[in-house]
Write a protein that binds this DNA or RNA. Structure first.
Length: 320
DNA sequence: CTCCCGACGA
DNA sequence: TCGTCCGGAG
């Protein structure tokens, strides 16, 4: 790295750090207010889900299950219900599996190596790196869609392309990561935050950007702005994802025994005699979606995922 | 319609 | 490396 390049990087780092001080969103798991486990939960909830939607779920979740051991002891039905409408409910299943591994294999203490973290259910490259940086304060380059976009724009003057992070992108991320450990954490957080709130994909707010004077992308006239960088997202309407969501949403809405005993007598629906888990009868299942071929395919896939259980009479329920 | 702090299996 | 998995906001 040349002297001038080093100086430029340092200038950018200082501006971002100052910007972070006054512009960081006050998320409840930031600024040392959450345990490493709490940070991990926030990262899992944030996978493909906006922070603004995550915050209330995280608050409720952490009150119910403050640590891995508590989550490990919950029933799967409770976990799926608490996941609510965050989307991608398999994440909730994996998070509980993760909690059980942490409790059983790691004595309820989150491991702090990349290899061990990525070995946990639902924890991939991004989440492992984020936990190491944000929860444990280790020096490691965090690579997510926001950071890839910001680094590509500021340092290379181009839009980041879709697909997996290329080796060149990882090299760049490691090259510009501050040597000082504490500064590397602030760097990761500030670059990510800039990408989420200012240096957005389609319409970046360059006038409000703290590094607009140093940005290669802006200097080049923002070539190819808004160019599709990620692979096209699957549409939603009419897909299996929508149908699966309908089924789970119906199951989440069923009154439980707690509702019956606590509140104004809600109609306690049909429940399994042994477990007490509320059951959605086959007739109610069929009322959810007219295409029964697709519906049954989704019921089967939900069962395979462990998100529901199918009873002999065709009714379904959340797993215990 | 696209986008949002991805992970996983085929 | 690609397809799948949710849902809401802009």
């Amino acid at each position: 790295m040349s002297v001038s390049e080093t100086e430029r990087n340092e200038r950018i780092r200082l501006k971002l750090a100052a910007w972070w001080e006054t512009n960081a969103r006050d998320l409840p798991w930031r600024f040392g207010r959450a345990t490493p486990w709490g940070v991990l939960v926030s990262e899992v909830m944030s996978q493909q889900t906006q922070m603004s939607r995550v915050v209330p779920y995280w608050e409720t979740w952490m009150r119910a299950w403050p640590d891995a051991a508590a989550l490990a002891d919950a029933t799967t039905a409770e976990v799926i219900t608490a996941w609510g409408r965050l989307g991608y409910p398999r994440r909730a299943l994996r998070l509980q599996e993760c909690a059980r591994v942490v409790r059983d294999r790691y004595a309820d203490e989150l491991p702090r190596t990349y290899e061990e973290l990525t070995g946990l259910p639902g924890i991939g490259d991004y989440t492992a790196s984020a936990v190491l940086s944000f929860a444990f304060g280790e020096r490691i380059a965090v690579i997510d869609t926001n950071i890839r976009r910001v680094l590509a724009r500021v340092f290379r003057g181009v839009e980041s392309l879709g697909g997996a992070a290329a080796p060149a992108e990882r090299e760049l991320a490691n090259r510009v990561l501050p040597e000082d450990t504490a500064r590397s954490v602030t760097w990761n957080q500030s670059v990510m935050e800039l990408g989420a709130t200012v240096c957005t994909a389609k319409s970046p707010l360059c006038d409000d950007c703290p590094v607009r004077e140093d940005c290669a992308f802006l200097a080049a006239g923002r070539p190819g702005l808004g160019e599709r960088r990620t692979r096209p997202r699957q549409r939603f309407a009419g897909t299996d994802r929508q149908v699966r969501g309908l089924v789970l949403n119906a199951l989440r809405g069923l009154p439980t025994d707690k509702d019956a005993s606590a509140g104004p007598a809600g109609p306690a629906g049909p429940a399994d005699a042994v477990t007490g888990t509320p059951v959605l009868p086959r007739a109610d299942v069929e009322a959810l979606w007219t295409d029964h071929i697709q519906l049954d395919r989704c019921i089967a896939s939900l069962d395979e995922d462990g998100l529901i259980e199918i009873l002999p009479d065709g009714g379904v329920r959340l797993p215990r």
